[in-house]
Nucleic acid binder design. Structure first.
Lengths: 111, 111
DNA sequence: TTGTATTAACGCATTATTACGATGTACGGG
DNA sequence: CCCGTACATCGTAATAATGCGTTAATACAA
C-alpha cells in the first residue's frame, strides 16, 4: 500500500494497528474460529475446510503467528496450531481498553 | 492486496475482517483517539496534529466513515467529524463477542 | 463578484497484500 | 534407502492500499 509512515505515530498506535491489520482478513478470522471450534490443535485440514491453496493458508498462519495469537508445534510430519491463550487474552484486553475510551462526550454537542 | 476471495467466507467473517482492516492503520487509530480526546467534533486540525498531508487524512477519514464508526457534518466552511456512538458500541460488542469465544479448551492438550 | 479557507476527488508513483504454482525440507513407512 | 505426506519458502501475477500533488467544489468574508 505504498509505505506507511509508522515513524510519526506512537508505539502503541502502531502496535494496535498491526494487531487489527493481522485480524483484517476473512481467512484469518476463519482460521481462528476453526481452531477454537475444534477444541484441539488443528493442523492443515484447514486447507480442506477453507477453499484456499496450501501455500495461502500457510502464509495466513504465519501472519497470525507473527502477532503471537497462535503458536505451532511440530507433531510428527504435521504441525499443530493452537491459540496462545495468554496472547489471546492480552489482545482481547488491549482492544477492550481501546474501545473503553469514552466516545460519548462528543455526541450531542454538534453532530 | 491482490484480490481477496470473500465469496468463500461467511458474511460475518467478512464483516469482521472489514472492520478489523479499517482499524488496521496507525493513522486511523490516531484519528479516532484524537477525535475522542478533543471531546468535541474536530475538523481538520488533524492535518496539523498528524504529520500527514490533507488528502491523505481525508482518505483515512473516508475509510472510517465507510465502516460507520465516524460521521461528518458540514459546519460552515469546514467539516465536523465525530464518533458515531451507536456504531462505536456496536463494533465494540461485536469484537467482544469474537474474543469471548473460549480459547482455553485447546491449551494443555498438545501445545 | 472576488478572494480565501476548507475539503473532497482524481490521478500518479510506490509499496503491500493475496493467491497460487513450483520447489525445497523434514518426517515416517515400507 | 526411496517414496509419499505435510508444510514452508520462493517467485510471480494481479490487485489493493499509502501518500501526495493537483484540481475541483463549497461556504464564507470583504
Amino acid at each position: 500500500m505504498g509505505i506507511t509512515k509508522t515513524e510519526i505515530f506512537s508505539e502503541k498506535q502502531n502496535e494496535l494497528a498491526v494487531t487489527f491489520k493481522a485480524l483484517g482478513h476473512p481467512a484469518r478470522i476463519a482460521i481462528l474460529q476453526h481452531i477454537i471450534k475444534q477444541q484441539s490443535c488443528i493442523c492443515n485440514d484447514l486447507v480442506q475446510e477453507l477453499g484456499l491453496a496450501q501455500p495461502t493458508i500457510s502464509q495466513h498462519l504465519r501472519e497470525l503467528k507473527n502477532i503471537g495469537i497462535i503458536k505451532g508445534t511440530i507433531e510428527g510430519t504435521s504441525v499443530c496450531y493452537c491459540i496462545d491463550e495468554e496472547m489471546w487474552q492480552s489482545i482481547k484486553d488491549e482492544l477492550n481498553a481501546f474501545f473503553s475510551q469514552d466516545a460519548s462526550v462528543c455526541a450531542g454537542k454538534c453532530c
